[in-house]
Structures are given as structure tokens and as C-alpha cells.
């Protein structure tokens, strides 16, 4: 079974290439556009990794991250922030709140794939 990745991104022009890239690299991908939809997707899709934008409508990425880390069933899901917030303070905040990786836009596809592979290398395929 391929690894499952949940992409949380409200910009379609970023979401479409990311989704294509991940699928081409053999991952099963689900995409949602806001923080609140993440909760349903986490239960239904059970991803191994969440690629998480921060500036989302309604619930922001930091809050989503905190919810995932505080939920006993989801605590082990890997989280990689994928965001335009590139200040050192933002990176520090994301990592201290439970992020496993922090990718700043603009990013290269190779960078994303390398990050995803690193995070999922320890994860057994389902």
C-alpha cells in the first residue's frame, strides 16, 4: 500500500502541481482547502503525512497542528508545513508546536519530494 498524504492548501495553483507531483512519485493523495475539513479527512483518509499550509481560512495551520498533536490517534502523523510565512520566528513557532518539517514557499519539487521521503522513510507502508 502506498503512503497516504493529506495536502491542506487553499491555493489551487499550488495544490494542482503538488498533487500531480506526489501522485507521480507513488503516493496516495487527498487534498482539502481549509483547516476545518482536515478533521474529517484525518478520520476518513488516515494519512501518514500532512502537508500543511499555515494561512488558511477559518482555522489556521498552527491550530490544525495543535489539534493533531493533542489527539491520541493522530499524534504520530508526520506534519510538514508548506507555507509562505518564512520568518525565522514562524519556523521556530511551527517546529515548536509539533511540526516535523518546514518548507518555505517558493520551493522546488525536489525539495518537497526529498522532505516527504525523509519523513516517511521510517513509516511502514500500509
Amino acid at each position: 500500500m502506498p503512503h497516504k498524504i493529506l495536502v491542506v492548501e487553499d491555493e489551487p495553483n499550488i495544490l494542482i502541481p503538488i498533487r500531480f507531483l506526489l501522485e507521480k512519485n507513488g503516493y496516495e493523495v487527498m487534498a482539502v482547502e481549509n483547516g476545518e475539513a482536515v478533521m474529517e479527512a484525518l478520520s476518513a483518509f488516515a494519512p501518514d503525512l500532512v502537508l500543511l499550509d499555515i494561512m488558511l481560512p477559518q482555522m489556521d495551520g498552527f491550530e490544525v497542528c495543535q489539534v493533531i498533536r493533542n489527539h491520541p490517534d493522530w499524534r504520530d502523523i508526520k506534519i510538514a508545513f508548506l507555507t509562505a510565512m518564512g520568518r525565522d520566528m514562524d519556523i521556530s513557532k511551527g517546529m515548536s508546536m509539533g511540526g516535523d518539517a518546514y518548507i518555505t514557499k517558493p520551493f522546488s519539487n525536489a525539495e518537497v519530494i526529498e522532505c516527504v521521503k525523509n519523513l516517511l522513510s521510517d513509516e511502514p507502508q500500509k
Binding site: N13, I14, L21, K24, A84, P106, S108, N109
Partner: peptide, 22 residues
């Protein structure tokens, strides 16, 4: 401005790389 620029460049870069790669 910074956020929008980062997002746009990111989209362009990702799409261009995919066009070249596949």
C-alpha cells in the same frame, strides 16, 4: 506582498519543473 509573491513563485516553479520533468 511577500506572501503573495512567495505563493506565485512557488506555483510557477513547481509547474515549470513538472513540465520539464514529465
Amino acid at each position: 506582498l511577500t506572501k503573495n509573491m512567495r505563493a506565485s513563485v512557488s506555483s510557477i516553479r513547481s509547474a515549470a519543473e513538472l513540465l520539464l520533468e514529465y
